[in-house]
């Protein structure tokens, strides 16, 4: 069961231990870890334009319909690998309920418990407190290894950068914007990109409406603002909450209300309902998963959707 990370100390400890265990597990390429492999996968997906050269900026997992199912697949793979690393088959990814933090005052949002020393730690370049603080003299310190730059993907060695409320975005999505997004009845719409309207996917991703997912990346700042954003372990907690919101929407609107269908044009490759979800070439865990594989039984994965149900009747 996926739980609010701030409501369950065991879930919180398991998550921190789990990501550190993955960070200590070498990938097939021993220059980086299995955790870093997920950073690499996300960055490469970001660079995979669908179709190549499209002017809408749509890639295999962003600015298009596959945004939600691709990230669900990514979280499931990550969750399973942490469970294995911890030797806890029942491990479930927790989520950061930024909807609740978004109801706080502006100052309190930056000082919310999620940024405490016993949770994700605070800001810094590099982060200097909490479980992901950087100390070059400590062999077990949290080290960023993958960085996406204009000239490509690089192997680096540095601490994590995080600049909460310092990148021009001082507030998380407010409850009103979450409520308005939840009331969208259409999963997505032509032209299936960041201009789509009406589109639940596009509002939740944050290109339309009031920012939502994109706003949270900007609020955290630092590495979370780049294509290598999974370098910050808050990434997975953030996306788990995005997935929870989709799960609630599916519960209301039907699990398989995804669009576009397979009859859509070929330039929507990787975004049609039966298209394969992008993964790295040579991925040893590739399962041949397609978008529709991500529809089943979403709401049962979460400890609570009641806060979202309350919001969805307010507007």
């Amino acid at each position: 069961m996926r739980k609010d990370i701030m409501s369950d100390a065991t879930a919180r400890a398991d998550y921190i231990d789990g990501v550190k265990a993955l960070k200590a597990t070498p990938a097939d390429d021993p220059r980086y870890s299995r955790y870093d492999w997920y950073v690499l996968w996300h960055a490469a997906t970001m660079m995979t334009m669908t179709p190549p050269g499209n002017s809408a900026g749509r890639n295999a997992a962003h600015s298009g319909p596959a945004f939600l199912p691709w990230h669900r697949y990514y979280l499931k793979r990550f969750e399973a690998e942490i469970a294995q690393a911890l030797g806890k088959p029942d491990f479930a990814l927790p989520y950061w309920n930024w909807v609740a933090d978004g109801a706080l005052g502006e100052t309190d949002q930056g000082n919310a418990p999620i940024w405490g020393l016993d949770a994700m730690g605070g800001s810094g370049s590099p982060v200097a407190s909490g479980p992901f603080a950087y100390d070059p003299t400590d062999p077990d310190t949290w080290v960023v290894r993958i960085e996406l730059r204009p000239s490509g993907l690089f192997l680096v060695e540095r601490g994590l950068n995080r600049m909460i409320q310092q990148a021009g975005i001082r507030r998380l999505p407010n409850t009103g914007s979450v409520a308005r997004t939840l009331l969208r009845g259409d999963y997505d719409a032509a032209p299936w990109d960041r201009s789509s309207l009406p589109s639940f996917r596009n509002e939740l991703e944050g290109w339309r409406g009031e920012g939502m997912h994109n706003r949270v990346h900007g609020f955290v700042g630092g590495d979370m603002g780049f294509g290598h954003s999974p370098n910050d372990p808050i990434f997975f907690l953030h996306h788990c909450n995005v997935d929870r919101i989709w799960a609630f929407w599916q519960q209301r609107n039907g699990a398989a209300t995804y669009l576009p269908l397979d009859s859509a044009p070929a330039d929507l490759m990787r975004h049609r309902v039966s298209d394969p979800l992008y993964t790295l070439p040579g991925d040893p865990g590739a399962s041949g998963a397609v978008i529709s594989d991500m529809f089943a039984d979403p709401s049962a994965s979460y400890d609570s959707l009641s806060d979202l149900a309350d919001l969805a009747v307010v507007v």
Partner: peptide
């Protein structure tokens, strides 16, 4: 940064091979 290693790109249909010119049609 100069000591960092370029990883290349382990993907097949990325856009890195395109030129430096970007054409937009609206």
């Amino acid at each position: 940064m100069t000591d960092d290693t370029h990883l290349g790109l382990p993907v097949g249909d990325h856009d890195m091979s395109h030129g430096t010119q970007v054409t937009s049609v609206r």
